[in-house]
Design a protein around this nucleic acid. Structure first.
Lengths: 335, 335
DNA sequence: AGAACATGTGTTAACGTTAACACAAACACT
DNA sequence: AGTGTTTGTGTTAACGTTAACACATGTTCT
């Protein structure tokens, strides 16, 4: 509540002298320093970061714009971002867009107003509007997890096409011939890429597609699974576009008494954190969520500090398949 | 990047006139308004919230200080906070303390410097230092989930003593006589309260205590469970202080081939979100995490806006027991 | 002795915004 | 015609901080 002026008055010096004590800059006699420090302590003075930011044009704050902090993948990403940012003296403002383009652009405007130094963005759609907006306003940013087509941008992500291909191959190699894709929206680049990988693997093997579309939610996972189960030739495996979809699908299977993996295999994208699972079950492509957050933040901070002035670059992190109990040979196969 | 001055110059008016257009205050001729609006659009001008905040002494930002965003309970709390805050035009800065008092006070100082309008705090320990600090600096705050003893503070939480009592009674009623408590640190009020409830239930029933202590982590849950299992008279039930501890304990049991609930029952605090679990297993006290975040934020915002000027109050939310498959009668009992 | 430099402190202006005041023109009322 | 009110716009100062400059001293060097 007290200002640098209050401290100055109490110590009988000018505000500039107090400022010098606080920032340890310039010359100050030992005696004055002590008097100022005492005044600071007595008043419980804390510098006003707002005024400082206004002068320095630096807020030491970044924004993390994600779709849903409740999704454990993004929770872990967020933790990686916050840890890395705070290590370097930066604070993080969180924004949940719920995959809505409108929410996203509202938040972007707000963050520009708030003069955040940089932004880490998981774009709701692969539209270029958000990136263009930030470029216009000269706010450094890093795109996380997803692609924005046709623009050269700093990006940290995993290759979902390859992951989708490998996960599908894993099922094919186990002997599956009818594999249903429970996909997210095509506007979400990771969904589109995973679907593309799925198609490539099926086409190579000469198998037929079975594609279902919905949002990347538990509810739609449930719905898509039920739809897929009504097909005359029931699939022997599900490829869920992400963990929420997978869990929704598993719920549908449980309800209908379909055993996993004996009757039907399920594979999915994004692992659950180790600390939350005592008996890992799902076969997944495990994206390194914490690392992704960390690397995105590092890249952003290096841009901010001017350490890194190279052309925008895409960091592609490896995402291993972890084969577990939810995938096995289809029923009626001799192992 | 452009300022109100740039807009003014371009429109051929004073900055004050621009300010009036932006804020829709005072009198402005239709013609001038249009000229200013055009200049704003052409320049892509966005008001500087920093400068505004400095003038108004209001940042429209609150801080959420929690121990670990990675814990699904706090993730959901955070979501409740962010949703409610953003509904009212407030942004949220996240801080993870990892249960460290030092981290907590560092963050508190930083948030005071940043002039956040208010703080929602999950205190690492029940020490009064943090609350006293915030009171000194006249920053409104709400304590979430935990108690700070001996101070009249705005608080939103569930009664962990009653919850601990009921969860223990649930086990006793099932026929358990040797119930081990896998407790968190006594400095954490929820841990202390759950332990107190456990003790009351056991004492009433004339049963012996079996208490183990560690941090509220998966790793320590694992360790405490292993310790508990070495007792000459093995417990027939575990009461885990929270979900992470429970999962660590389940991992230990799985490793040793001990079946839940046939050989040993496990109950715990804090449910996992519906969307993440397809086959709910753990018997828990389900604290309404989202609600807690929402209510804490509402209370805080009402304090900020001056709508609510009553004495500090404690909001106690009900937390139901959800009995599921992880708890059953002890082995050797005729159901 | 005088110049050059180090040390210690204060004054002014600026970061971007807006409240308070001032002023002028147009209009309405007696 | 004179007074008061409405409408439209500009000027000044302030929010809290610090860089740049100014101005004293004192010290060191030739």
């Amino acid at each position: 509540m007290s200002t640098i002026g209050d401290v100055a008055r109490r110590a009988g010096v000018s505000t500039m002298t107090v400022s010098r004590v606080i920032n340890n800059s310039g010359y100050i006699s030992q005696e004055t320093r002590e008097r100022v420090e005492q005044a600071i302590a007595e008043l419980g003075y804390v510098p006003n970061a707002l005024a400082r930011s206004l002068r320095f044009k630096q807020t030491k704050t970044i924004a993390l714009i994600i779709t849903d902090i409740t999704n454990p993948f993004f929770t872990t990403v967020a933790r990686g971002v916050e840890d890395t940012a705070s290590e370097h003296g930066f604070s993080v403002i969180f924004c949940n867009t719920d995959e809505s383009q409108d929410e996203e652009s509202d938040y972007l405007t707000l963050m520009v107003q708030k003069q955040v130094d940089g932004i880490i963005l998981v774009p709701a759609h692969s539209s270029r509007a958000s990136a263009a907006f930030l470029q216009d306003h000269k706010v450094p940013f890093v795109v996380l997890d997803r692609r924005i087509a046709g623009m050269e941008l700093d990006t940290v992500r995993c290759d979902s096409e390859i992951g989708g291909y490998q996960l599908t191959r894993h099922l094919i190699d186990l002997g599956h011939r009818r594999i249903a894709m429970l996909s997210g929206p095509l506007l979400v680049s990771t969904s589109a890429d995973r679907l593309a990988g799925y198609r490539r693997a099926l086409d190579e093997a000469g198998l037929e597609h079975a594609e279902f579309f919905g949002s990347l939610s538990n509810a739609d996972g449930y719905r898509m699974a039920r739809e897929a189960l009504t097909a005359p030739q029931r699939p022997t495996a599900f490829f869920a576009a992400n963990n929420l979809v997978a869990i929704g699908a598993l719920r549908a299977l449980l309800e209908q008494g379909i055993r996993v993996p004996q009757d039907l295999s399920v594979v999915s994208y994004d692992d659950l954190p180790e600390s939350m699972i005592f008996d890992p079950f799902l076969t997944v492509v495990a994206q390194p969520a914490y690392d992704m957050g960390q690397q995105a933040t590092r890249l952003l901070l290096n841009r901010l500090s001017g350490i890194d002035t190279t052309a925008p670059r895409e960091v592609l992190l490896p995402a291993p398949i972890i084969a577990r109990k939810s995938s096995a040979a289809p029923p009626g196969t001799n192992p």
